[in-house]
Simulated assay, not measured.
Amino acid sequence: MKNYIDIGINLTNRQFHNDIEHIIQNALEATVTQMILTGTSVKGSEEALRIAKEYPTVLYSTAGIHPHDAKSRDNQSIGKLKKLLVNKEVVAVGECGLDFDRDFSPRDQQEKCYKEHLELAIEVQKPLFLHERAAFTRFMAVTKDYLPQLPKAVVHCFTGTLAEAKTYLNNGFYLGFTGAISDTKRFAHLEEVVKYVPLDKIMIETDAPFMLPKNVPKANLVKYHERRNEPAFLPYVAQSIASFKGITVETVALETTKNTKDFFGI
């Protein structure tokens, strides 16, 4: 039997309001047996932990401040994240990094916030859940100063170039792939990336409610939620990887689950 782990779902997003139990049940029925809730702000990280505690050994969470929210952090933010990271359910520092695509927070504030997360990960020795969008050069320039001390890191929702993927791999990072890989128009280049990246460096995620895989049959999309992604659709990400690599979906499920358990210690 195939079991999957979704390393990134935004279960605190308002699109899932009053629907959490249903979402989790759908995932379990789709053999997505464990899920990691992404923390994108102090408040969101606290809420993610609260939800995770309600579903022991099924849900876990991360604690971090998304670069979009870097402008909202204050002198107490990192201390609050540190307290969350003491909990066994909180398995990674993040989501953190740089986003120069939308620039919702000033770039200098994004960099300062990111550096604080890197230092926090080194202190608590928990893996990093990283976000990088349209900021590769600066992202690596900031990160390289910390590399010798950093714990494990995964660049989640990877949509970059093959050259960028190679750099991340050369620095020991894992890559998280979403339904974006099934978008043959916008992200056609990701087929080449997926073919190149070793299976033992791949994890899979939905980034729900975003990044809906293009290969989900319309019949599986819930009425009134045609554009909402769910962790139940994670197998379709695995199907794309299997197709690109010419291997079985069972192999993708087995290997990515093993990678995830080893990486996050779950």
Score class of each variant (00 low, 15 high):
residue 124 V to I: 14
residue 160 G to W: 10
residue 159 T to A: 11
residue 122 I to G: 06
residue 82 K to A: 15
residue 86 V to T: 14
residue 142 V to I: 13
residue 119 E to D: 06
residue 158 F to E: 01
residue 83 K to E: 15
residue 123 E to F: 12
residue 129 F to H: 08
residue 161 T to E: 11
residue 156 H to G: 08
residue 127 P to N: 02
residue 85 L to K: 01
residue 79 G to S: 13
residue 92 A to C: 07
residue 134 A to Q: 13
residue 103 D to S: 05
residue 137 T to D: 14
residue 104 F to H: 14
residue 82 K to Q: 14
residue 125 Q to A: 07
residue 115 K to C: 11
residue 118 L to D: 08
residue 164 E to A: 03
residue 116 E to F: 01
residue 164 E to T: 04
residue 154 V to T: 12
residue 116 E to G: 07
residue 128 L to K: 01
residue 142 V to K: 07
residue 164 E to D: 10
residue 140 M to N: 02
residue 148 P to A: 12
residue 154 V to K: 08
residue 91 V to A: 03
residue 142 V to H: 03
residue 99 D to W: 02
residue 119 E to R: 09
residue 135 A to G: 03
residue 97 G to M: 09
residue 132 E to K: 10
residue 112 K to Y: 09
residue 147 L to W: 08
residue 108 D to F: 05
residue 111 E to P: 00
residue 156 H to D: 03
residue 157 C to W: 05
residue 132 E to N: 15
residue 153 A to M: 03
residue 159 T to F: 01
residue 111 E to M: 06
residue 151 P to A: 06
residue 103 D to Q: 07
residue 125 Q to H: 12
residue 112 K to T: 12
residue 110 Q to V: 03
residue 95 E to A: 06
residue 144 K to M: 12
residue 93 V to F: 02
residue 142 V to G: 00
residue 157 C to L: 04
residue 129 F to M: 09
residue 108 D to K: 10
residue 121 A to S: 12
residue 120 L to T: 01
residue 99 D to C: 04
residue 102 R to Y: 13
residue 101 D to G: 11
residue 121 A to H: 00
residue 130 L to V: 04
residue 105 S to M: 04
residue 152 K to D: 12
residue 147 L to G: 04
residue 148 P to M: 07
residue 82 K to D: 11
residue 160 G to N: 09
residue 89 E to N: 12
residue 106 P to I: 04
residue 167 T to F: 10
residue 143 T to F: 08
residue 130 L to P: 00
residue 146 Y to H: 05
residue 118 L to C: 05
residue 149 Q to W: 09
residue 157 C to F: 07
residue 94 G to V: 05
residue 122 I to D: 08
residue 81 L to P: 01
residue 89 E to M: 12
residue 145 D to F: 15
residue 155 V to F: 14
residue 84 L to V: 10
residue 125 Q to T: 04
residue 115 K to Y: 03
residue 143 T to S: 09
residue 93 V to H: 00
residue 122 I to P: 00
residue 158 F to T: 01
residue 145 D to Y: 14
residue 158 F to L: 02
residue 159 T to I: 04
residue 118 L to R: 07
residue 155 V to I: 15
residue 90 V to C: 13
residue 153 A to V: 02
residue 116 E to W: 00
residue 133 R to N: 08
residue 146 Y to D: 05
residue 113 C to L: 01
residue 137 T to M: 08
residue 123 E to S: 11
residue 87 N to Y: 11
residue 106 P to G: 04
residue 114 Y to I: 03
residue 163 A to V: 13
residue 160 G to E: 09
residue 165 A to G: 08
residue 163 A to Q: 14
residue 115 K to M: 11
